[in-house]
Amino acid sequence: MDKSLQKTEQEEIESKRKVYREAKEQTRKNARRLRFDESNPQPKKDSVDSPRKRFYRQRAHSNPFSDHRLDYPKSPESMDWSKYYPQYHDKESNNMLQDVEIADIGCGYGGLLINLSKEFPKTLCLGMEIRVQVTQYVEDRIIALREQNKSKDINYQNIAVIRGNAMKFLPNFFKKSQLSKMFFCFPDPHFKQRKHKARIITNTLLSEYAYALKVGGIIYTITDVEDLHNWMVEHLTEHPLFERLDKQWEDQDKCVEIMYNSTEEGQKVERNKGDKFIACFRRLPDPEI
């Protein structure tokens, strides 16, 4: 095909995506406002539509070391969760009724998060994603789900997504022992040796995850890259604050099943007939210091 023609076509697609995303942004803004203003009129129809993924595509990698323009709280105490979980916020006391307990680190397009919402309808789950457009997709998806399921038992008020760099700023979000589950699903494999520090599981980062996890809390990992699986297992096994859970445990755990089936990455692997490797680890008590 003619190069310039190809370029124009590419630009057209880009601008179409842009227009679509801008429209959704308006919806998002409205939704944020509406959460605090319950006397609002019926939302416009398009906010109920589920977002279409093809308008939000973004390359799969992001450098965790670079200075993205990120919003993160100065400390866990200064985090305003009410914007994310308005129904779990008590207006009178201005306190949250409960804390986030499940974190999906690198939540991608949000498949796991949505299934967790159904499995744990009374638990607050947070997805963290570093890519802007992917985060917006998940946010739009949650807005739509909340609208569509307003009067139902499962109303998706317990899930939210934040654009953030979990590797750098996790301690800004979560207090000590706040989390009971952390998910690391199909993380960036960073194949090159010198990029290994950019992997989401390293022995030094595990100490920070252990800080946020309560004793008995679980780290879930899944990947289709065997090398990365071995790496994660090696580092988690080596870490004194984690112990691996066996196959038997995995087989009876509901989250393992959800994780295996529900993420977009996982479904892609399925379509391509690839393998999926799972490893789960339990947070052990701190040793006597």
Partner: peptide, 14 residues
């Protein structure tokens, strides 16, 4: 903590 550095005591935020 040192030498058990894998046990984080806390962060000083501010």
């Amino acid at each position: 903590n040192y030498p058990i550095t894998y046990v984080v005591k806390h962060w000083l935020f501010g």
